[in-house]
Structure formats: structure tokens, C-alpha cells
């Protein structure tokens, strides 16, 4: 960010604008291109193997035959548990940490550093930890529940820190305005803070869901390796990412099936992200109608004018 001495000359600023626009666009698009490189390689290797039976039937021959139906069920169950466990805790903890009166207290500082440390714990350690705590100490055994809770612990820091920042960056004026109007903490949170932060909270959610779907090592030791359809949350169930890993690393001749499974995983991410997260952003925009919508529309049009 070169701090250029201010030159408000209109044409100059336009030229800078245009150059910056090009740079930023190129950066953004090259990310998508890189994504394309990685994902397209996977899609090309795997897409041909996907058909309806692949999505609905059980694996045979260690995954080289059959489909991945039961694993989709396990994956969604583990994901649901992880999100149900982590989302409320992350959001409430974020609300707590974002409170302005308390930010510099030692407790908040320690909690925040703790979360960063937690974010750096390797997933294999989470797996062994989850195995010791949930599977053994709490007696859940290898189960969907243990896997989901382990994942919940794992994505907690990502969701909390992102959500905290989202809440903390809201303008102070709103809080002051709410105080002047005699609006209580809960109503303020419910009516103003959360809706306004909804799009950013959507990013937090996307991070959590993404990490959950992609996780392998933490689940290998907790939700486990069993390929059946789980009949209860206390059954072991293999998730798609564990299956991808196993096929790619331990099953000779499993590479194409691994790619196919990875394609389904990516598709699942697109589906969940496109519905849950995107609708969250829309809900947020809708509920905060009086404040947010106009402002953002204004901003968009105003900035748009200048190009």
C-alpha cells in the first residue's frame, strides 16, 4: 500500500484507479485460475466415474467398486454435529470477545491467543485428542458423534476469530444510537448487530464448513473407517475425505475413485455453501433493511460512478 502524497487531481486519481483495478482484478482472477488448475485436474480424473449408482450404493472391493452412498450420509451427519456444536459456541464467544469494554482484559487476551494456538494444532493431534477424550474417556467409541465433536473443537477458532472481527468492526454509532433509544443488549444484538454482520458471519460459516468437509486426519481416529450407513450417532462412519485419503494412499488402483469422491466432496461444498451460506447473507441483508441495504446500495452506485 504505497502511501503516495495526496494528489487529488482527478485524472491522476483515475489513472491510479485504473491501474489498481487491473492489479486487483488480476490477483483475484489468478486465484480462481489456480483453483481451476487444482480442481479441474481432479474433475477431469474423477468426473467420468460419477453416476447415480455411485452416489447411492455402498462401496465394494475397498472402494474400487460400488459407490459412496453411506459415506455421504456419514459426512453430512458429522458436518451437522460439528456445526451444531461449534456455531453457537463460536458466536457467543465472539460476542463476548467483541465487547468493547472488555477487550484488553487479561482474560480476553489469553482467550484470543488460546484460539490462535488452537488454530495451529495439527489435525492429527486433534484426532488423537478426540480419540482420547470423546472415544475413550467419554465412552463414545469410534462414532459419528465423537468425530463431529472433535471437528467442532477444530473449527472453533476459525469461526470464533472471524465472527469476532465481524462483530467488532461494526460502527460504534449504532451502539450509541441503540443506547440512546433505550434498546436492550439482546434486542440490539438480534435486530441490528447480527443482521448487519450476517454476510461476514457467512464467511465464518464457510470457513468452518470448508474445513470440516476437507478434514481427514482428525476424523480417521474419531468417526473412523467403517463404510456402513450409520444407524445411530454412536456408530462409526467414514467420511468422504477419509475415503479420498484411503483410496489415494492405501488402495492400489484406487486413484480414479479417489478423484471421483473428491469431485463429490467439492460438489457438496458448492451445494452447502451456495444454499446455507449464501442464504444467510441474503437473510442478513433483508433483516437489516433500514440501515444496511440502502447504505450498501448507495456505496455500490457511488463507487460505480467513478470508474
Amino acid at each position: 500500500m504505497a502511501e503516495r502524497r495526496s494528489n487529488f487531481g482527478r485524472s491522476n486519481s483515475r489513472r491510479v484507479d485504473r491501474v489498481a483495478g487491473v492489479i486487483v482484478s488480476v490477483a483475484a482472477l489468478s486465484i480462481v485460475a489456480l483453483l481451476g488448475w487444482v480442481v479441474v485436474a481432479t474433475l477431469r480424473a474423477g468426473l467420468g466415474e460419477i453416476d447415480l449408482p455411485f452416489l447411492t450404493t455402498a462401496p465394494t472391493r475397498a472402494g474400487r467398486g460400488g459407490g459412496i452412498g453411506p459415506l455421504i450420509v456419514s459426512t453430512l451427519l458429522v458436518l451437522a454435529i460439528a456445526m451444531l456444536a461449534a456455531t453457537p459456541i463460536a458466536l457467543l464467544a465472539a460476542i463476548r470477545l467483541a465487547e468493547r469494554s472488555r477487550q484488553d482484559r487479561p482474560g480476553a487476551v489469553v482467550a484470543r491467543s488460546g484460539l490462535i494456538v488452537l488454530a495451529a494444532v495439527p489435525s492429527i493431534v486433534f484426532g488423537l485428542f478426540g480419540n482420547a477424550l470423546f472415544c475413550q474417556a467419554l465412552g463414545m467409541g469410534y462414532s459419528i458423534l465423537a468425530g463431529g465433536l472433535t471437528l467442532g473443537c477444530m473449527i472453533l477458532p476459525f469461526m470464533t476469530v472471524t465472527a469476532e472481527r465481524a462483530l467488532r468492526d461494526l460502527p460504534d454509532d449504532w451502539r450509541l444510537g441503540a443506547a440512546a433509544l433505550g434498546i436492550g443488549r439482546l434486542s440490539y444484538l438480534w435486530r441490528i448487530e447480527l443482521p448487519a454482520a450476517a454476510p461476514a458471519l457467512g464467511s465464518a460459516l464457510a470457513l468452518g464448513i470448508g474445513r470440516s468437509l476437507a478434514e481427514t486426519a482428525a476424523l480417521l481416529f474419531t468417526s473412523g473407517y467403517v463404510m456402513r450407513v450409520p444407524t445411530s450417532l454412536f456408530d462409526s462412519g467414514r467420511t468422504l475425505s477419509v475415503h479420498v485419503y484411503d483410496l489415494a494412499m492405501n488402495v492400489p488402483g484406487g486413484a480414479s475413485r479417489a478423484s471421483a469422491t473428491a469431485c463429490v466432496l467439492i460438489g457438496l461444498m458448492v451445494l452447502i455453501d451456495g444454499t446455507v451460506v449464501a442464504s444467510l447473507a441474503r437473510i442478513g441483508a433483508g433483516r437489516s433493511a433500514p440501515i444496511r441495504r440502502d447504505a450498501s446500495r448507495d456505496r455500490a452506485s457511488r463507487i460505480g460512478d467513478r470508474s
Binding site: L77, A80, T87, L194, V229, T231, S232, L280, G284
Partner: peptide, 26 residues
């Protein structure tokens, strides 16, 4: 964050139902 909870609850119930009605394997 009730909105995602609202979205997830039906999903979870649906999954639970799906898992519950599995056909006999043998």
C-alpha cells in the same frame, strides 16, 4: 446466529431420518 441454526435443524432431522430407515443389510 439463529438463521443458520434454522437452516441446519431440518437438515439434521432429515439426516437422522435418512440414517434411521436403512434397509436390512443381509
Amino acid at each position: 446466529m439463529t438463521s443458520p441454526l434454522r437452516s441446519f435443524l431440518p437438515l439434521a432431522l432429515m439426516l437422522a431420518a435418512l440414517a434411521g430407515c436403512r434397509p436390512p443389510a443381509e
